[in-house]
Amino acid sequence: MVEGSIVTIGVVFGAMFLGLILGVPIAIGQVYGKPFLRKIIAVYVWFFRGIPLLVLLFLFYFGFLPLLGLNLPAFTVASIVLGLISSAYQSQIFRGAILSLPEGQLKAARALGMSDFSAICNIILPQALRLSIPGWSNEYSIILKDSAVTYALGVPEIMARTHFVATRTYEHLILYATAGLLYLILTFAGTKALRILEEKVRIPGYATR
């Protein structure tokens, strides 16, 4: 089960990272993009937020990826699917953070001769990303728990190992309670780490709330 935790952490980190690098441009596109781009993004977000994880896992693992001739291991598919879903959710967290910044800042940056791109990168994002950390720690605990579902593809994470041991020893109750405890510890550790990060990157004198 400890080995399983490492696999779980691997899946979660892969997904969070993919969600982050996709979520930021999606959020920027949704706030500042052209109407056509916004439409596409809205459909993307609607798609990945509206379909259950389990269905998406099956769809990608047995459907899309083999069709494209890709035969990826379950671990990779799990990270990708969780990452895509997470990018849809994370984009909404970032969008909220971007929208919470006063509009005047962007105008001021433009007036100082910054290009749109550099204004977003240098003025908006550093603030918005800091504001997003609380939402991000929520997202972490959701992905962590959702990662249990990847057991359906046979990813050898906590849940799969627990079930495997349980079916051999018939100690279901105790083993699942232990698995639950492991998840509680991982959730607690992760949110604590993000809380510390939040303190670390805070700009002195710049109260977020």
Binding site: A148, H172, L184, F188
Partner: peptide
């Protein structure tokens, strides 16, 4: 804390596979 911190799947498995033990 308990029910938000433990994955739903673990909860379901506990109810379905665990409760028969008691």
């Amino acid at each position: 804390v308990l029910f938000r911190g433990v994955p739903l799947l673990v909860q379901l498995f506990t109810w379905y596979f665990g409760l028969p033990h008691i």
